[in-house]
Design a protein around this nucleic acid. Sequence first.
DNA 1: CGAATTATGGACTGGATCGTCCACAACTCT
DNA 2: AGAGTTGTGGACGATCCAGTCCATAATTCG
Lengths: 198, 198
Amino acid sequence: MPRPREFDEDRVVVAVRDEFWNKGYAATSMDDLLRVSGLGKGSLYGAFGDKHSLFLRVLRDYDDANLLMLRERLESAPRGVDLVREFVLSMTGDPTGAAARRGCLLANSIAELAASAPDVAAEARRSYDAVVTVLTEALERAQREGDVDPDANAGEVARAVLAAQLGVIALGRTGMDVEVLTAVGQSALSRLLPAPAQ
Amino acid sequence: MPRPREFDEDRVVVAVRDEFWNKGYAATSMDDLLRVSGLGKGSLYGAFGDKHSLFLRVLRDYDDANLLMLRERLESAPRGVDLVREFVLSMTGDPTGAAARRGCLLANSIAELAASAPDVAAEARRSYDAVVTVLTEALERAQREGDVDPDANAGEVARAVLAAQLGVIALGRTGMDVEVLTAVGQSALSRLLPAPAQ
DNA sequence: CGAATTATGGACTGGATCGTCCACAACTCT
DNA sequence: AGAGTTGTGGACGATCCAGTCCATAATTCG
């Protein structure tokens, strides 16, 4: 009996996500979101609630998609260490630097909102905990595969790798050259991943 | 012939800086800034221009003060490696975690504004370049003092150390326990600073 | 075909925000 | 002491923004 929705919820979330990603939370107005989603006010508010709820929904979807991709890549990667390298250098894939300047939606959101929005901070902790778990698995696999020192504490290295990635992302947003950025990531990686004693 | 200012410019900059630091750029209103500075609109606009100019002034002062402190600490530090460790663990000094949650004004600003404010991005590049210079000096001294492998490229290590610090700052803003945060920083440090061959 | 239910999108409101402007106060130099 | 110059702070306007509300349209079930 109900009239069916005329829009695809996921498509709206993606459009809204890109707008938040490009402009940041505060600098994005509801009018912007209505424009990029193509919806009217009643529809957007009816489906997602207010601006903050919509943002949190977008952020959770973004995090979930990233985690899923990370797990899939770990399964498909030839070696565990490949995932770790990909992870740290993820922003340097685009040679134009556009991806590096845009950064990561989660990292940007933490810096803008974590102090005043506890739910954003909690979502970040949840997401990073999960990332550390995947990275730890990847590192343990790399240890079995002989690419990383088996005596290293995989969990500790995973956290250091995460910190390095967040640092590379932050530097990328300053507009640093992609070549330099890549070098920074590789430099950090080569030192964070202790080579096996052989 | 001119009537003298009734306020101390540096004192105003500090008050305004704290407000921007606590709330972020967009979330801070000019009314907030008038309140914390104690000035009227004419005085604040007359002395610093509009909100963006005022913010940039505050950010530059903040960066300059940080750099000055870094250089002074390098001179007074017993060993070069001490400065590097202090730098990465700077946010973990407050056991309550308040400093970690507040993070770094520059790092926060990059994430919120770098994409849309080229002057903020440029200021960040300038500041981080200078930080890398100081860190490189500290590492070279540490190499002479036998605390760091003399074969390592000090400039490369300096950039990796900066990335690690930015990562620790980002994680600190999520509200991560200070003990865990400290462990992450120490883990990254122990791997980024190659011990001398002995 | 008719009734009931829900999506839709624009109108509307109350409030906040940034920046300008102006009248007054305070101070300095002659 | 007076004239001129500059700081001061509140009033004001124009804009923007988030969220509510309602009349209408579209769809499904009886």
